[in-house]
Amino acid sequence: MEDTQIIELFWRRDESAIRATTTKYGRLLHSIAYHILANHEDSEECVSDACFRAWQTIPPQKPVSLTAYLGRIVRNISINRWHEKHAQKRYGGAEVLLSELGECVPAVETVEQEIDANELTAFISEWLIGQTKENRILFLRRYWFGDSVKSIAIHTGTAANKLSARLYRLRQDLKNVMEKEGIRL
């Protein structure tokens, strides 16, 4: 089913919108959640919660990209759940993702105000646009979709260590440009 048809179902308050969403996006959303939580049961719950959240928010929302919209919801729910588990020392996948992203944190000390969330998002979007398509996709497959380096390696026929090195350079580049721009987190 086309995304526009699914969104139309949400807008008509037709409950088959949930089934259509689960059918089309269930696997992708589960994958995103699982790479953060490393637990199938928790991931399943996050996917259910994400579908319910979509039901609550569409309308009034009318997403341009249903993938991005649903993916964001499941990422947010999953990372929050991960934090809860982290507090209980039951953490899983996001530990690695966050640790890698920690390398992007700029080391500059400035008197500037902290960049706000929207500005930081816009900055990272621009930085991604400035990357080659291949690098942009690699970065987002790893840090948005949460794909493991191994699975990307299998999919692309590239050695995992090469991809890890490339991701490292991308993280360093993001850090450097943020430092250059005097961005403080």
């Binding site: 997403p63 341009v64 990209s65 993938t67 991005a68 919209y69 993916g71 964001r72 990422r75 947010n76 990372i79 996001a94 993702l97 966050l98 640790s99 992203l101 920690g102 992007c104 944190v105 969330a117 929207n118 930081l120 998002t121 900055f123 990272i124 979007s125 991604l128 646009i129 398509k133 942009r136 996709i137 987002l140 497959r141 840090y143 948005w144 979709f145 987190l185």
Partner: peptide, 19 residues
């Protein structure tokens, strides 16, 4: 790093679609 994670969550839709 959580701020970066959240910022990446909200990057532009077209970039997500591309990936």
């Amino acid at each position: 790093e959580k701020r970066i994670f959240d910022a990446i969550t909200d990057v532009r839709d077209d970039l997500i679609e591309e990936a």
